[in-house]
């Protein structure tokens, strides 16, 4: 027996063996479906929005309606039917290869679990603004925050939540600021700091805040952690991927950007005999 085992080495495993202990809820046949203490059919259906339940499932806390509505608006901003976007193109390739809509959409969602765009970047975005807020409250200036972050990337403004691939500027931030104003949602401490950081980046690098930076700061002001934000937006890109799938699924197979053999450039070793 391994020396590091306690006197009851199997106790932990035996406790879990053959039993599910859910902290979330479940279906009690004849009594109802329960979710974090709510009866789904009595307390939630028809009384709260779908997005409120998504956030409840992701965080364990039922948010106010306006926060859920704001999150829903973000989904519109981050899921558009353009197959040039990498995750969307995977949906389009699924359509042209005749996968099911579920398979293609799921593959597209999986692709957006990426470091350069999509959902995974939210982890870095939220962590950055929350750490920046901590530093700022401890006397670090906004200029110093930017300088310290840029130093990690050889002086380049690679700060999660600022700048973006392909284009400069972000029209989605403009739209969400408008929504925020129309709904009477105030700028919290994190968002105010995010705008100050943006000012420095605009001045020094001509780069602005992207939708990740805006989301990360707004949701930090609502008290969400980085991991919670990542969980809430797990399928953020879904509808745009589906749209791109449909566009190619309704055309002949392989009609999506067909490639000739020489459309792929071969740069490997020349032809040679097998020894």
């Amino acid at each position: 027996m391994s020396s590091h085992m306690s006197s009851s080495p199997l106790q932990f495993w035996d406790k879990h063996r053959g039993t599910i202990r859910s902290k979330k809820g479940g279906w009690v046949v004849g009594k109802g479906v329960f979710n974090h203490g709510y009866s789904m059919m009595k307390d939630l259906v028809g009384k709260v929005s779908y997005m409120q339940v998504v956030i409840l499932n992701a965080t364990g806390r039922l948010p106010q309606r306006h926060i859920a509505d704001w999150c829903e608006a973000i989904h519109i901003c981050l899921s558009w039917p353009d197959p040039r976007i990498w995750c969307n193109q995977i949906g389009a390739l699924g359509g042209t290869a005749r996968t099911s809509v579920v398979a293609a959409t799921t593959a597209g969602i999986l692709a957006a679990d990426a470091k350069s765009y999509g959902m995974k970047t939210l982890l870095g975005g939220v962590r950055f603004i929350q750490e920046a807020m901590f530093d700022h409250k401890n006397g670090v200036s906004v200029d110093e925050i930017v300088k310290k972050e840029c130093a990690k990337h050889r002086g380049k403004p690679h700060i999660m939540g600022y700048a973006r691939p392909v284009a400069k500027g972000d029209e989605r931030v403009v739209a969400m600021k408008r929504v925020q104003k129309e709904w009477g949602l105030p700028d919290g401490d994190h968002l105010q700091l995010a705008y100050q950081i943006e000012k420095v980046l605009l001045r020094d690098f001509d780069e602005s805040m992207n939708i990740n930076g805006y989301m990360s700061a707004f949701l930090s002001d609502q008290g969400y952690t980085a991991e919670e934000v990542y969980r809430i937006f797990a399928v953020l890109v879904t509808s745009g991927v589906t749209a791109c799938y449909i566009d190619t699924r309704d055309r002949p197979p392989e009609a999506f950007l067909p490639l000739r053999c020489d459309d792929i450039e071969y740069t490997g070793k020349p032809a040679r005999a097998v020894p």
């Binding site: 990498w86 193109q89 995977i90 699924g94 593959a107 999986l110 679990d113 990426a114 765009y117 999509g118």
Partner: peptide, 11 residues
């Protein structure tokens, strides 16, 4: 699709 995932830095 694999290439898109690769170049897009998907996990």
């Amino acid at each position: 699709a694999a290439m898109n995932a690769g170049v897009g830095s998907s996990s």
